[in-house]
Computed example of a mutant assay.
Amino acid sequence: GPDIIFFWVARMIMAGYRFQHNKPFSNVFFTSIIRDKIGRKMSKSLGNSPDPLDLIANYGADGLRFGLMRIAPTGTDVRFDENQISEGRNFANKLYNATRFRLMQGDARGGTAPHYSSVHISIISKLKQLHADVEKALADYEFNALIQTLYQFFWNEYCDRFLEAVKGDLKDGADPATRAATLTTMDTVLRHYLALLHPVMPHITEELWASLGFAEGNGGLPLMRTPLPSAENLLAGLDESRITLANTQAAALYETANKARNLKAEYDLSNNKNVSFILKTPHDVPQDILSRLAILANAKSVIRDAAYSSPKGTPAALTPLGELFLPLEGLIDVEAEKERLGRELDKIAREIAKSAAKLGNAGFVERAPAEVVNQEKARLADWEAKQSQLKGMLDSLS
């Protein structure tokens, strides 16, 4: 920490010149000082310092390390919050569950030549970029950025997107070549990712490395003695145009899936698997993309129809793949939905009136702290946006 630079680092420098006749090191990293919630330095006399062993017992050593590094930007003191440490434990659970899901699928080797689709190529492309991002973060001593990069890739790109998109590849009766591609891709991602994460979470990564059989295929070497896998051979043999196309198609798939789920949520159909979407576009869309879109949207099907003429009031969203329609016939009671929206609009109108009255009160605006006034303005804007959205939905049902 910067508070002991003279007492520790300066003495090491002087001792290095005295006994080695040379400077002992070239770089000094200033760690963040961990303070309590109100900004005080932790000390035994204040009694505001948690026992690290208790934290390790609750969240694991890896969870504690990950959680602390995630909230420690370079050059800024950290206000300790145990809820942030629980995020480290949650991430460890996510990593464990994703690995267990892979182990449940069996061996990837089955004599079938893998058939890689856009989602496979895209996640490997992102894995290759992850190598570069991790290398840069380490070179720049940006450990907080390192953690955020590792977290975002695994939680968002790999688990929330890729694994959800490929679940259909692992069902009974799925195409063997596609299944082989999915399992091989999962193994590639996990092999590289565990190695990249190892310096941050050494215990769980070592255990999962052995569980997945990676140590056996590496002469029995544990992960801590295994050289970092090279990213150079990732996507070897694929030209840049194919990789670019795969990334574009995968990004379009995931964005369209988000909009499809939003359409379902607007009409309380989030858990309804009997929904069918219509994708209106003059462009060809691979069946692989349409099938994965249905899985991600938790829908019965997604049908491409370039000549689709939507009935009045059909909910729609403009997506990278084309215009997406959600036919509501047989899915909702229109009159009941109108009543529900009417009740919601009445509630919102009351909230808007309450907020507007506050902001119209000169005494409140002049005496309240600026952050409270700004918070009220943001609240009013949110209610007005929600009102506009619900009015549009109500009009579409008329």
Rank of each mutant, 00 (worst) to 15 (best):
K273P: 07
P222C: 06
T281H: 11
L238T: 06
I332D: 08
S122I: 03
L197E: 09
P327M: 08
L46R: 11
F154A: 04
A252L: 07
A294S: 06
E216H: 13
Q249I: 03
V302F: 00
A92S: 13
I348G: 03
L380T: 07
F29L: 14
A145M: 09
V119S: 02
K347A: 13
W8K: 15
A132H: 13
Y141K: 06
I352R: 12
F153W: 02
N90L: 12
L223Q: 01
Y116I: 01
A385V: 11
Y141V: 00
Q20N: 14
L290Y: 01
N83G: 11
L55F: 01
P50T: 08
V119E: 08
R40T: 08
A362G: 05
F66W: 10
G330D: 08
A98S: 08
L103N: 09
Y116E: 12
A177D: 10
A210P: 00
K264E: 06
A257K: 01
I278K: 02
L253N: 04
N374G: 08
P24S: 08
P114H: 04
R261P: 00
E255P: 00
K41L: 10
V166A: 02
T314Y: 04
A250Y: 01
K312N: 13
D288Y: 01
V302K: 00
P320E: 02
V285G: 05
A165N: 01
T99M: 07
G60F: 05
A145V: 10
I352Q: 13
Q105M: 12
F101G: 04
L95D: 01
G75Q: 06
G220P: 05
L345P: 01
D77G: 02
L238C: 04
L341I: 11
Y59F: 15
I71K: 15
M12K: 10
T256V: 00
N156Q: 15
F29Y: 15
A61N: 10
A98M: 06
I13Q: 09
A299K: 00
G360L: 09
Y193E: 05
S49C: 15
R379Q: 14
V78E: 11
A250V: 07
D3C: 07
E376T: 11
T256Y: 03
N218Q: 12
Q152N: 15
K37N: 14
P369W: 02
D305M: 02
